[in-house]
Design a protein around this nucleic acid. Structure first.
Lengths: 83, 83
DNA sequence: AATATATATGATCTGTAGGGCATAAATGCC
DNA sequence: GGCATTTATGCCCTACAGATCATATATATT
């Protein structure tokens, strides 16, 4: 499952999606990542201009990684398709 | 060309790589992205905990996008391979 | 509907990112 | 070596992220 992200909001969606897929609560994720539950809530909802370090802390806890690539018009399940 | 990123540093590397590939100076990129040259320098060198918005502004100017995916031990040219 | 659990919101405080400007250091070219 | 261009540093200032705690909603569960 790969998710295209072009905005901070997309990142938030990807995080929420991955967290739910792993059946974790925000609190669980907070404990594993060292990021506050309140912060996770804001990140997932795009309510703050999150710092990279925070994003990667969360990603690590969710076993996610980023792939940087040139923009493709190509399909692939992007958030535009899902949300 | 896809680059795996698991740390802010990786993002900086990817940016520098893409910028050079497009033969742009930091100043050029600054103009296109609306992000200061000084900031770009710091981001490329991992000298600041960059905000997501800034990263995406730069990415847009470089026609880059992010793919969020589960971590794979798999090959693919990651920074571990390049740097 | 009451209770429990999960998520969101709100305030305060500290640290730091990034805009802005100046300039130093490095790199490239003749 | 000397000049031009590019990149890195340093400072000031304002805005805001995230830690932390409290509490309000919202979402199950029985």
């Amino acid at each position: 499952m790969k998710n295209r992200a072009r905005t901070p909001n997309d990142i938030g969606h990807a995080i929420r999606q991955a967290r739910k897929a792993k059946k974790l609560t925000q609190k669980d994720l907070a404990e594993r990542s060292g990021v506050w539950q309140e912060t996770i809530s804001k990140v997932e909802n795009g309510l703050s201009d999150t710092k990279l370090e925070t994003v990667f802390d969360i990603f690590a806890a969710l076993d996610l990684e980023i792939l940087v690539q040139g923009r493709s018009k190509g399909s692939a399940d992007s958030f535009e398709d899902i949300f």
